[in-house]
Simulated assay, not measured.
Amino acid sequence: MDSFEGTAVEACRVAGEYLVSEFERESLDADYGPDDVKAVADRGSERRILDILAAAYPDHGVFAEESGKRVGESEYRWVVDPLDGTNNFCSGIPYFGTAVALLRGNEPILSVIHDPLHDDTYIAKRGDGATLNGEPIRAKSTVSSDHATIAFVIGIDVLRDEELNARGDELESNLSGYGKRVWRSWAPILDWGLLARGKLEAVVCFHPDDVEQHAGWLLAEESGARLANEGDLFVATASDELSGELKSLF
C-alpha cells in the first residue's frame, strides 16, 4: 500500500503542476459540446498520470476519463480523473483538481485527491483512515442543519437523459428545503475533500461519474462521514442531524 500510495501521490502532483502552469498562462484550448467541455489540459494531465502508473505497474488495469479502459493482467485497476472541474478551468475559476483511485477487484482500496492550486493532497486507504497533507481528518461538522451547505453532484449521463434530468431537478429542488445553500461546484472531488475535513455538511450525488466517485466515496467513508446509498443516489454527511433529515430523499 505504501508503494501504491507514493505512486498515486506522485502522479497527481506531476499532473497538478502541469495544470497550474496551463491555468496561470491561460492555456484554455478546449472542445465545447452541448453538455460538456474537454480541454487540451485534460489530455495533457491524463498522459502524465498514466505514464507514471504504467512505469510503476505495467500489469495493472486502468480506466481513465479520456482514454477509456485498459485491461491488465493484475487484480488491480486504477481509475483516473485527470482534471475534475474542466468547466471551471476553462472559465478561469480556480476550483479544479485531479483524482486517482485504486481498486482491487471492484473494491476501492486507495484514494488520492489533489488540489493543485492550494497544494492540498487528500489520501484515504481502506481501513486506515483519511489524511490531508499527512494529518488525520474527520468529516465532522457542528453547523446546524438549517445553516448547512450541501454540495449537489450529477453525472454527465443525467444531462443527456430527459428522465434522469427531470429527476435531478427534483432532487435539487428537494435539497433546497434543507440547510442554507445547495452548492454546485462542477469539481466534485474537491467537494469530497471539503466534506472529509468538515468544511461542507453534505455531498449528494445522483448518477455520478465513476472517475470521480470511487475516490470521493472512499475518502468520505474513511473520514467517518455518514453514508447512505440507494441505486445511483449517494448521500454523505458530516453530521448525524443532517443525515437523518436527508433520508427522505430515498
Rank of each mutant, 00 (worst) to 15 (best):
L233T: 11
A54S: 12
C205L: 13
H147Y: 13
S145D: 08
A228D: 12
S239C: 09
D51P: 02
R126P: 09
G216C: 05
P136M: 10
E75F: 03
V62W: 06
H147E: 15
L164M: 14
L218Y: 03
E107R: 12
L249W: 10
A101Q: 05
Y178Q: 02
T121I: 13
L171A: 07
K199T: 10
I150F: 08
G134W: 07
D169K: 15
P58K: 14
T142I: 10
N106D: 15
L242P: 02
S144F: 13
A55S: 14
R167G: 03
E22C: 12
S3C: 03
L194M: 14
S45T: 01
D2K: 10
N87S: 09
W78G: 01
A99P: 05
P116W: 14
R43V: 06
N229I: 08
A55Q: 14
I154C: 08
L19V: 02
L103T: 04
D42Q: 02
A196P: 12
W217C: 00
S248F: 03
R197K: 15
D51V: 05
D209A: 06
D115R: 11
V203W: 04
A238K: 08
A202N: 10
W183V: 02
L194E: 12
E230G: 06
F23A: 02
L83E: 01
V182W: 02
I93E: 06
N106R: 09
I123K: 10
N229G: 05
H207F: 12
D51W: 02
V143W: 09
G134V: 03
L195Q: 10
G44W: 03
L159V: 01
A139I: 11
E22K: 12
Y95L: 08
H214D: 08
G97M: 07
L132E: 01
R77K: 11
K247M: 07
E241W: 09
Q213M: 09
D51A: 11
I137F: 05
P34K: 03
S27T: 04
G92C: 01
R181D: 03
V20G: 04
E162I: 10
H118D: 15
E107S: 12
N133T: 06
A11Y: 07
S185M: 01
V100L: 12
L218D: 04
G6A: 13
G177F: 10
A215E: 07
P108L: 11
L171V: 08
L246D: 08
S27G: 15
R77W: 02
I137V: 15
E75H: 04
E22P: 00
A11G: 09
A228S: 15
G179I: 04
A41R: 01
G105K: 06
G105V: 07
E46I: 00
Y76A: 11
L246C: 03
R104H: 14
F63Y: 12
V80Y: 05
F4T: 02
V40H: 05
P136R: 15
D29C: 06
